[in-house]
Simulated assay, not measured.
Amino acid sequence: MKKYKFFIGILIGISTLIACQKSNDVIVEEIEEVVEETIIDADNVLSETVLEANGEGDTYELINSVLAPGYDVIEAPDCSHELFGRHIDEIFDNDLNKNVFRFHIHTTPDNDRCINFDRQRNEIKAYDKSPDELKGVKNEKVVYSWKFKLQSDFKPSSNFTHIHQIKAVGGTEDAMPLITLTARKGSPDKLELRYSETTSQVTLTEIELASFKGSWVEVVETVIYGEKEFGTYKIEIKDFSTKNVLLSYSNDEIRMWKTDADFMRPKWGIYRSLLDATSLKDETLLFADFNIKEFKK
């Protein structure tokens, strides 16, 4: 973890200098607390999994090699739209100055893996074939981070348009996601943070979707998996360019588990209802810099 401490040392020097110039002891104290917590977290990293786009071609193979080597984590509508080909590819993005993942979805003929026809799915996931470090278990702290960008004219369904989920594998409540980021058509359109303690959902917080359209945003989601007295959840989404916080939520007394679950796992992509198909259009959703860290609690 020496590289973390090196950069943190630079941060301490710069931040302390700025704070001293302001002659504000409170600022210095707050900076020191943040830096100390960061050092502790860096020293307590048990594992880190990184998925980054590296250029055109072999995109499915790249994703699978990280999220489940030798297996298939892609849930794409390729079977219903063979003429289009693979629905996840990679392009160079000028804003980030790097390669990124591009997820495609089409109002027709795409569906949900030729299984469900009232919805469409193009997602990647961790699952039972994934390495253990990608499976969230009780009393484990996990930090998920990534970037995404919606088109400036992105159109959500009035039913659901999920772009991220945390789901259980196993147990009696695994059909309903534990955590969901979903876009929803309305007046105005919203991005909702949804939560399900058991089998029904509530909205924890929401923000106008316009804040997310046409710009890269970065997400940091921190979870301690467990029953209500042990579970914690925190998410912060910032505009990548301005660093302005667009959405923030934190709860240190929340059930982050499902009854009799084997483990919890993340999903990313676009999964939307076709019951309001007239509101939709063909979309491309960009993702970059997936990162999953496991920590000592």
Rank of each mutant, 00 (worst) to 15 (best):
D153N: 14
F154A: 13
K155C: 04
K155F: 05
P156V: 11
S158I: 05
S158H: 04
T161R: 03
I163R: 04
Q165C: 06
Q165F: 02
I166W: 05
K167Q: 12
A168H: 05
A168T: 08
G171N: 01
G171T: 09
T172Q: 09
E173R: 09
D174I: 04
A175E: 14
P177F: 04
P177I: 04
A183C: 15
S187K: 10
P188G: 10
P188V: 06
D189E: 13
D189K: 10
D189F: 07
L191Y: 08
L191I: 12
E192V: 01
E192Q: 14
Y195A: 02
T198H: 12
T198Y: 08
T199E: 10
S200C: 03
S200P: 01
S200G: 05
V202Q: 09
T203V: 13
T205I: 06
I207C: 05
L209M: 10
L209N: 03
L209F: 11
L209H: 06
A210D: 15
S211C: 08
F212Q: 06
S215E: 15
E221V: 00
V223A: 00
K228M: 06
T232F: 02
K234C: 04
I235P: 00
T242N: 08
N244S: 11
V245R: 03
L246F: 15
L246M: 13
L247G: 10
L247A: 05
L247K: 09
Y249F: 15
Y249C: 01
Y249H: 08
S250T: 12
E253C: 02
T259F: 15
T259M: 13
D260V: 11
A261W: 00
D262A: 14
F263Q: 11
M264P: 02
R265I: 10
P266Q: 07
W268F: 15
I270K: 01
Y271L: 07
S273H: 07
L275D: 15
L275R: 13
L275Q: 14
A277I: 14
T278Y: 11
L280M: 06
K281E: 12
K281N: 09
D282W: 03
E283I: 08
E283R: 02
T284C: 04
L286I: 10
A288I: 03
A288H: 07
D289Q: 04
F290P: 07
I292K: 04
